[in-house]
Amino acid sequence: MARNTAEAWIPEEWETSKVVQSLLQVSAVEALASPIIMTSDTKHVPRTAGMGVDVVAKGGAYGEDTSLNDEVLLTARKFGKAARIAEEDIDDSVANLIDAKMMGWSKSYAKMIDNASLAVSAAENGTTVPFTSLYQLLNTTDATLGYTGGTNITTAASANLPSYTEFNSAMGLVEGGDYFDPASMYAIAHPAFRKSLRGVLDLQSRPIFLEGLNGTPDTIFGVPVRWSLGARVSATATATPTGRPIMAFVNPDLMLLGRRSGPESVFIDGRDGLSALTDESILKMRARRAWAYGHPNGASILVG
């Protein structure tokens, strides 16, 4: 049976909303990924294996490209939460309780979307595992794309203490591929890497990690680092992952983030309906997102 509702969802203003600004500060995926606007719950996005080029003699025939053309399917999933708020708390609080709840939701959502997109270790099921994460993608063999599962994943021999060789090997896996773009490459990593990185030196005893100054980003091997609290391995999507941290070397052009709606909210006044008996109102927040990474050869992961 269809659900009817009279409440209007109010979208956050992308340029000015504090909720959105908080979200972009915490979520590497929301900040870096290529946004795909969705007008329905699914969308097919073209994926190409590239296109060749030949030298063509004067008057000669052009050779026809035989590179694979296919697509990825983006399916929007809903991330939401409801907060029941007593009328007294709204009336008596000096601080804006509703704004505080919305800010808290945005930070939790930011960590969860990063975890779901980058570090979940199970196959997509549409609920507890909303997407095929980058970690799962790189662990899965795809004969059509010529990729063998696990090829682009490096696991540190000592947990939480990756060596110079392991950092170098992980980055080298993506540098050697056709999708490497030095102008746009990023490393997305859990902050747990910061401690170990500060002690890692290259073969000339130079630090591979440089902390940014005056607004410049931190870098590893000259690649900007974006820190994400969602970048820990987890069996299901969560805002509080506890597994081993990951550092993903990615091309943002291949990070496809479908935006169906949100962040948006609706406030249901407790003076109406059954909630009128308890003087409670309900605040609901949600965002509908889809995710896919364009090609497994365009990324690599170091598991710390």
Results as ranks from 00 to 15, higher is better:
residue 40 S to H: 09
residue 156 A to M: 05
residue 103 M to I: 15
residue 134 L to G: 01
residue 253 D to G: 13
residue 235 A to W: 00
residue 201 L to V: 13
residue 151 T to R: 07
residue 233 V to R: 15
residue 79 F to T: 01
residue 93 S to R: 04
residue 197 L to K: 09
residue 92 D to W: 10
residue 106 S to K: 03
residue 122 A to G: 11
residue 162 P to G: 01
residue 108 S to W: 07
residue 65 D to G: 04
residue 61 A to Q: 10
residue 69 N to L: 14
residue 166 E to Y: 03
residue 32 L to P: 08
residue 56 V to L: 11
residue 85 I to L: 09
residue 25 Q to C: 10
residue 211 E to K: 15
residue 120 V to I: 06
residue 23 L to K: 10
residue 204 Q to I: 07
residue 257 L to P: 00
residue 149 G to T: 00
residue 294 G to T: 03
residue 211 E to G: 11
residue 66 T to K: 13
residue 269 D to K: 10
residue 149 G to E: 03
residue 60 G to K: 02
residue 302 L to Y: 10
residue 36 I to W: 01
residue 140 T to L: 00
residue 141 T to N: 07
residue 140 T to K: 00
residue 191 P to G: 04
residue 41 D to P: 02
residue 37 I to L: 14
residue 251 N to E: 12
residue 249 F to D: 04
residue 105 W to E: 07
residue 61 A to V: 11
residue 221 F to I: 03
residue 133 S to P: 03
residue 177 G to T: 15
residue 78 K to L: 10
residue 302 L to N: 06
residue 227 W to T: 06
residue 267 F to T: 06
residue 280 E to C: 09
residue 112 M to W: 01
residue 175 E to I: 02
residue 169 S to Y: 08
residue 67 S to M: 09
residue 102 M to D: 06
residue 229 L to P: 04
residue 40 S to P: 01
residue 153 I to L: 11
residue 136 Q to I: 00
residue 235 A to C: 02
residue 235 A to S: 15
residue 151 T to D: 14
residue 189 A to G: 07
residue 183 A to S: 14
residue 237 A to V: 07
residue 162 P to W: 00
residue 178 D to I: 10
residue 10 I to D: 04
residue 13 E to D: 15
residue 145 L to Y: 08
residue 144 T to D: 10
residue 75 T to S: 15
residue 151 T to W: 02
residue 196 S to F: 01
residue 73 L to K: 14
residue 192 A to F: 09
residue 287 A to D: 13
residue 90 I to F: 06
residue 118 L to K: 03
residue 162 P to V: 06
residue 151 T to G: 07
residue 237 A to Y: 02
residue 170 A to G: 08
residue 144 T to H: 02
residue 59 G to I: 04
residue 289 R to V: 05
residue 114 D to N: 05
residue 172 G to L: 08
residue 246 I to Y: 09
residue 63 G to W: 00
residue 207 P to C: 14
residue 304 G to K: 00
residue 232 R to I: 00
residue 136 Q to Y: 08
residue 212 G to Q: 07
residue 49 A to Q: 11
residue 292 A to S: 11
residue 232 R to V: 01
residue 297 N to H: 15
residue 147 Y to D: 01
residue 124 E to H: 08
residue 197 L to S: 09
residue 64 E to I: 11
residue 212 G to L: 05
residue 230 G to M: 05
residue 68 L to G: 04
